[in-house]
Design a protein around this nucleic acid. Structure first.
Lengths: 199, 199
DNA sequence: AGAATTATGTAGAGATCGCTATATAAATTC
DNA sequence: GAATTTATATAGCGATCTCTACATAATTCT
């Protein structure tokens, strides 16, 4: 008995599926970016009118926050770091490879929603997206620090920088194998950094 | 006798310095991005009114094109590739280091104007900026191809990806030394790629 | 001097932006 | 059934966007 069946509230029931509407909005934000999508387009894609939009999501900015959190939580990219007893360099290499694949898998949603919107012209949206990014970088840093505390910061920054480049390339329309080649080359520096005295 | 002294044309002379106005516009575009600056702000920074703006530059898009070309031509980053007899890996390592420095040198103009605007929400502006970027990548690829034709494409793509990440980090406010650490680590992959059989 | 040409300032058109006032419809509670 | 609560649709507000119509000022050519 999950609570998927919502308890009926008092007033008039909502005429649309909130979660489905979030999916539509996420797709639009992914394609056009925060600033490239207007409330009119969002509401239209959701099949509703602006007042219903504001009643359900508060504002465009709040909706974006909600979608950022959703996206970050649903992203499986950082899961490789939780595999027990994995070699750090190998884990990060797989992370980059997975990112290269994920970012270019769906041409309609190329790149990373978080990384791409970290450069939005809208100061608030960019700041929120960057906070989201920083949290992921911190996760990577802590992961590396468990075995290589000295190099943890640089390695995490480096991985994030490469991911940013991969996301940008994906949005430029580059094919998956081209991105994977970059990711694999980038892994060379990670191995050199984490296993300096040849195995 | 350079032709800096412009030949007087027929009608009323322009009341502002066109080149100086371009500088103002470039600074604004660098800080706020193509979409973050309006014609009103551009004209105001130039000390003119919209009609003079359109008479002198055609449109916001045309002005941006002109500034992109200006910026790319004035950028000294790719000059290291022209140093005679330089080691390819060392040249690219220096290129990345220089980019890390340049992108974070002036906090008021962090990152690369071209790379940052390649992700603009405005389709035209993003496309023009990406064309500009592609030209630079081609230059790097040709440079690498002279000594390592097989690896030229990946290495050039990789360098561009790292530069994109550096630019993004610079815009996020990261300090120069943090960027340089990333650049130096990135250089490890270049050396590993171009000198595979240990020196 | 007068005609032709170019630049300038004022003022605003037309579109889109995020957002909301208002009235009505559909559900629950009393 | 009446009161309460919540969602919906229509319509539009004020701000901002790119860009321009218009009249006027400043220069060169004849």
């Amino acid at each position: 008995m999950t609570d998927t069946e919502k308890i009926r509230k008092r007033g008039r029931p909502r005429a649309f599926d909130r979660d489905q509407a979030l999916n539509q909005a996420q797709a639009l934000f992914h394609v056009h970016g925060y600033e490239g999508v207007g409330v009119a387009a969002l509401a239209s894609a959701m099949g509703i009118n602006p007042p219903s939009f504001y009643a359900a999501f508060g504002s465009k900015a709040q909706l974006f926050d909600e979608i950022l959190a959703r996206y970050a939580q649903a992203s499986p990219l950082l899961d490789v770091l939780d595999l027990p007893g994995i070699d750090p360099a190998a884990a990060l290499a797989r992370l980059l490879r997975n990112a290269a694949s994920a970012y270019s898998a769906d041409p309609a949603q190329a790149g990373c929603l978080v990384l791409e919107n970290g450069r939005s012209t809208d100061a608030d949206a960019a700041c929120r997206a960057r906070d989201c990014r920083d949290a992921s970088v911190a996760t990577i840093r802590d992961f590396v620090a468990r075995s290589h505390p000295e190099q943890a910061q640089v390695v995490a920054d480096y991985v994030a920088a490469v991911m940013s480049g991969l996301s940008s390339d994906a949005r430029a329309g580059h094919a998956t194998d081209r991105l994977i080649a970059i990711a694999d080359m980038a892994a060379l520096a990670i191995r050199a950094m984490l296993e300096p005295e040849g195995r």
